[in-house]
């Protein structure tokens, strides 16, 4: 077995063990949310970490997945499993339309372009009340079921989400260790050189943007059918920032870093509740301090500090 396969088996075992041992429904819900956030972080990591293209509007695709499926099932009575491909398709179409002009931009301009897109989608969720329920939110999204298995049961939903996460990990890892994945990393390192070895950088950037959007929409679908109530605030600019933060803190260009980043950022508010009014102060401080001290993300940062201390000891 390769190292990757071993890690998948361990991951699988960890999911099953957690699912069987855990009793408390609150924790089930929290860990399921971590799973959904891991998907989001993974989606953005493919774009930001590997291809080096920032998006400050990824919550938009998350929201498009959630709202499309929510509206189709609750308002139009679709079966959720029929609504899912519709939601993914819509996210893909929008990603193509928006990505085509936006991905020409670089640096801050790309950040601002994606931010503007995210804001507009958020405003649509908030203002198009006849369809989306407006600022007060959208209710009555049905739970998922397959045959007789109802995913209303938190344990089942936990398994569903985490198996999707495991599958996505495998897919992304395969994608990265391929011709396409190398080309993505090439774009990140030097776009000029990538063109010079014959990579159609525009095309590839668009493809990975679309892939990332679809994966985010999938996360949105899972979120909507878990919570059954969605509101625009779950897909605001701050959420986009949170996704970027998960990727960066967990570690750019690291699949397992997405898991770490999503876990930390999802748990953080839970821990910060103890600070109550200090929550924002502490959150902002953590973002700044992590970025100043280990700009390459916590995973790499910790490894580096460990290696440095080891080599320092070795010298002594």
């Amino acid at each position: 077995m390769t190292r990757d396969q071993i890690s998948y088996v361990i991951f699988f075992a960890a999911i099953v063990a957690t699912g069987l041992i855990l009793k408390n429904y609150f924790y089930f819900q929290l860990i399921t949310i971590i799973g959904i956030n891991t998907l989001l972080a993974l989606a953005l990591n493919m774009l930001l970490g590997y291809a080096g293209q920032i998006s400050l509007g990824h919550a938009a695709f998350y929201g498009i997945g959630a709202y499309t499926s929510g509206i189709l099932t609750a308002t139009y009575g679709f079966n959720p499993w029929m609504a899912l491909p519709c939601a993914l398709m819509l996210a893909i179409v929008i990603a193509v339309v928006v990505g085509f002009p936006t991905l020409k931009l670089t640096g801050y301009y790309l950040g601002m372009g994606t931010l503007g897109f995210g804001m507009i989608v958020h405003i649509v969720f908030r203002e198009w009340s006849s369809v989306t329920g407006g600022a007060s939110g959208f209710m009555g999204i049905p739970p998922l079921e397959i045959g007789h298995v109802s995913f209303f049961e938190p344990r089942n939903y936990f398994f569903l989400v985490w198996f999707v996460v495991l599958l996505s990990f495998i897919l992304c890892k395969r994608l990265i260790n391929s011709r396409t994945g190398r080309a993505l990393k090439a774009i990140h390192d030097s776009e000029n050189a990538a063109k010079a070895v014959g990579i159609n950088t525009r095309n590839l950037k668009l493809k990975i943007f679309v892939f990332s959007a679809a994966l985010s929409a999938l996360a949105g679908f899972l979120y909507a059918h878990m919570i059954s109530f969605i509101s625009p605030e779950s897909f605001s600019f701050l959420v986009s920032v949170k996704i970027v933060t998960m990727v960066v803190i967990g570690g750019m260009a690291s699949i397992w870093g997405s898991l770490l980043g999503a876990s930390l950022l999802t748990m953080l508010p839970e821990w910060l509740h103890a600070f109550s009014d200090f929550e924002m102060v502490v959150y902002g401080l953590i973002l700044m301090v992590v970025m100043i001290i280990t700009p390459q993300g916590l995973t790499r940062g910790i490894i580096e500090i460990y290696e440095r201390s080891r080599s320092a000891k070795a010298k002594r």
Binding site: K185, D189, S190
Partner: peptide
């Protein structure tokens, strides 16, 4: 100026 893919 040599543009290799430094992370690879």
């Amino acid at each position: 100026n040599v543009e290799i893919f430094g992370s690879m």
